[in-house]
Design a protein around this nucleic acid. Structure first.
Lengths: 181, 181
DNA sequence: AACCATGGGTTGACGTGTCACCTCGACGAT
DNA sequence: ATCGTCGAGGTGACACGTCAACCCATGGTT
């Protein structure tokens, strides 16, 4: 089925410079990650009607001190944008999985409801069994460590060069004539 | 910033059974993949206004025999659902990146327009440079091979257990009483 | 006091992806 | 000839994420 034509066109080899091996690694990784993501999402949806985002939020909340967190704390914990989190929580509130609690001044907490906790408890075993089937059990212990090491390395690299959110120092005067490449 | 609380709650260790190392590998992998995805998307959007999906479609088309493909061929090549592809192509048609061509009987081809080819050619070098920065150059050659091997292994495993699209043999008579776990 | 900067939180519009369902021509069996 | 069905393609509703802008309380500056 999948032909692995992935993410890179002919145009690349000459100019950007990825060797055949690098290209293959990247394309295969990218496809794999897409498919794994999709499968996880489907499985979670099928057994319990949670999205992966739902599950993640529930999991983080269930680990929190009082089963509740302030939004920006969750954002920091998950590495999510506040806006994404807001929308997510709004949707989950609508389904009764979590609730917003306005603590006296300014502080808004998001708390796990009994319903949310039940949903998590019900979905968790099947979910981790599924992760095991799809990924963990396919790999040798050595490969699992390799994957962890690779992921850590890449993440560390990413922490360095931030996605330039108005870094104030770039092309100060020109009127955005061309593309910001 | 990121705290790696990832995708799994306390509930898991006991029941579903992932060891600490496995859990860490999975969570780190998942986070890494999310962040890499997001960065690639941002970069592509910033230089040339393409989404990653756009880029992929353009790349596949640019490699095709006559710079055109039938939709289902593209679907097979990319491993995408026909519906996703349809929406994607509709959007890209709207922007003049590709065009639909109705060949005499039944066959509908999607063809790269000059505009689409130009967009791809413009985006490609920066894109592969970016892939290099984010991923390839962070890893040792050995790690690149490991990543490729791991990805291939997982993908092969996935080809086996399909996502059960009406496999005709499951729970034939009951009225969907509980959850389909 | 008036001012503005910051940051937590919100909102809306938009692009993306999935699901379930629909159309329609081709083809085979009766 | 009619029916069934199969596969290519399309459609609409909805969930998810991102972006940019906004609200508003806090906490300095002057």
């Amino acid at each position: 089925m999948h032909q692995l034509i992935g993410t890179m066109g002919v145009v690349d080899h000459e100019q950007g410079g990825l060797t055949e091996r690098e290209l293959d690694a990247w394309q295969t990784f990218f496809l794999m990650q897409e498919v794994v993501r999709a499968r996880i999402e489907q499985q979670l949806q099928a057994c319990g009607g949670l999205s992966n985002a739902d599950y993640t939020v529930l999991a983080v909340l269930s680990e929190a001190p009082d089963r509740r967190l302030r939004i920006f704390q969750m954002g920091a914990a998950l590495g999510w944008e506040k806006s994404r989190l807001h929308h997510q929580i709004t949707r989950m509130c609508g389904r009764g999985l979590v609730e917003r609690q306005r603590g006296d001044a300014r502080a808004i907490h998001v708390a796990l409801t009994p319903r949310g906790h039940a949903a998590l408890a019900e979905a968790a075993p099947a979910h981790s069994r599924h992760v095991r089937e799809l990924v963990i059990d396919r790999l040798t212990p050595a490969q699992i460590d390799q994957l962890a090491a690779i992921s850590h390395t890449i993440l560390d690299g990413l922490r360095g060069n931030a996605p330039e959110t108005g870094e104030d120092g770039e092309a100060p005067t020109d009127g955005r004539a061309g593309l910001p490449c």
